[in-house]
Simulated scan of single mutants.
Amino acid sequence: MSDTHEIQVVTFGLGAEVFAVPVTLVREILDYRETFHIPNGPEYLLGLTDMRGQGVTTIDFRLRLGLPHADPTPSTRILVVDVPLADRALMLGLVVDRVLEVSTFRGDQIDAAPDIGVRWPSDYIGGVVKRPDGFVVLVDIARVFSSADVPLLSRSIAHAA
Results as ranks from 00 to 15, higher is better:
M91L: 05
V96Q: 08
Y124H: 12
A86N: 05
L63M: 14
T57F: 02
R33M: 04
I116E: 15
E28K: 09
S122C: 06
G117L: 06
L45F: 13
A16Q: 11
G15T: 03
R98F: 02
D97P: 00
G126C: 08
G15V: 02
E101V: 04
L92Y: 00
I125K: 08
V96M: 07
D97H: 04
L30W: 00
V23K: 07
F105C: 05
V26M: 04
D87R: 14
S103V: 09
V118D: 05
Y32F: 15
T24S: 13
P132Q: 04
V118C: 10
V129Y: 02
L45E: 05
L65A: 12
D115Q: 11
P22T: 11
D87T: 15
L63A: 14
A89H: 11
P42Y: 02
T49Q: 07
D31A: 14
I38F: 06
T76F: 08
I38L: 12
V83P: 07
D50M: 00
R106K: 13
G15E: 04
E28C: 01
E17S: 14
I38C: 11
P42S: 13
P74C: 09
D111E: 14
H69A: 13
D50R: 05
P132E: 08
E28S: 09
V96L: 06
E17H: 10
D97A: 04
Q109A: 07
G127V: 03
Q54D: 13
G66R: 11
A112N: 12
T104I: 10
D31L: 05
R27G: 07
